[in-house]
Amino acid sequence: MRNIWAALALGVLLSVGSIAPAAAQQATQQADEAALLQQLKGAPVAGRVSIPDAKSGVLIQPQGREWRQTLEGPVKSVGGWLLVLTVVALAAFLAIRGRIKVEHGMSGRTIERFKGVERFAHWLTAICFVILGISGLNISFGKTLLLPVIGPEAFTAFSAFGKLSHNFLSFPFVLGVFLMAVMWIAHNIPNAIDVEWIKQGGGIFKKGVHPPAGKFNAGQKLIFWSVVIGSLALAVSGYILMFPFYVTDIAGMQLAQLVHAIAGIVMVAVILGHIYIGTIGMEGAFDAMGTGQVDTNWAKEHHSLWARDVTTRGAGDD
């Protein structure tokens, strides 16, 4: 028994003796790393390489830690809450205000609101954006929300497909935005009529209120410029990431990643509001992009100045 107890005691001493140096070594390494980063004061740690790509010699880039903390911290949390609150706000608005009806009812007569080429550009952009938005959100929130639901195999396949679609659909998306910008920019210049529209809340908060508006009202102009500016930010930052190191260094790519993530989340929130108004939020609104024809009563209530111009031109042609 004495021999057994002696052997056990010796084993414990050896274990403690082996753990203590390992812990001390780890603590020393952490202290050395912290001291090194403090000494460098944010400068990257680089060595020498024999290949043409000198960037491969960078071993440590301290700014990368700040970039990751920002992306995984405030950008992800604030962006996630923005999307949640947007959906909640739209649901609450629908519950309180209800669907915006055509006050005088549908007349049964229609006028052309958008031509075929305009609807093509809109739906090209819209379909691409939905896929880009879903695949982009999957990068930020997929591991937390989707992976536990569908499992690793399905999530891997979905993410791989999302990556490919995200890259290739960016080109028709940019084309669609460009076409809409060219066709509609003249109708989206802010003017004094927009101020009155805003003062009256666009007529969406009170029944029976129909502020005058041209082809696009102030709310639609806000959507238009948000899409144009947001898409520009997404395109520039996205192509910098798609073709790395062609125009910038690693710090520039990290900035592009932040811009791409923030612009993408804000764009998704804006488009959620646009989709709501264009579908369940307003009676008759979907027809504008569905068939290109809208009821004359809808046009007179929501775009009275435009409806008057179209009617006048039509009478002149007759």
Rank of each mutant, 00 (worst) to 15 (best):
I19N: 08
L14P: 06
L8H: 13
F224K: 04
S15N: 09
L85A: 04
E112L: 15
K76N: 13
T125C: 08
E118P: 05
I19A: 15
G203K: 02
W123Q: 09
P62H: 12
A43T: 14
A20G: 13
F155M: 11
M267D: 03
Q63M: 12
K206F: 10
P74H: 07
L94K: 05
A6R: 14
D249C: 02
T110I: 08
Y239P: 00
H274D: 13
L71Y: 10
M289T: 12
A256S: 01
Q39Y: 14
L164H: 09
M1C: 10
F129P: 01
Y239H: 04
D194I: 01
F158G: 01
G133I: 03
I111F: 08
S135G: 01
G73R: 07
K199S: 13
A22C: 09
V310H: 06
D194C: 05
V49D: 07
A91V: 05
Q39N: 12
F129W: 03
L37S: 09
I229P: 02
G202R: 02
T125R: 00
I131Q: 04
D317C: 12
S56R: 15
L82M: 15
E112D: 12
N217M: 11
A6W: 10
E153S: 13
I229Q: 04
A233P: 02
N188D: 11
L258H: 08
S237I: 01
P44A: 08
G230L: 00
N138R: 06
A181I: 05
Q25C: 04
F129Q: 02
H302W: 05
L222G: 09
M183G: 06
G79A: 09
S107T: 11
R97A: 07
G202P: 02
A9R: 12
G162F: 01
I223C: 13
N167E: 15
Q254S: 13
L40A: 15
A7Y: 07
W225E: 00
G64E: 12
G176F: 03
V247E: 00
A235M: 06
F178A: 11
I265N: 04
V227D: 01
I127Y: 09
V75Y: 06
A157T: 11
L241W: 00
A91E: 04
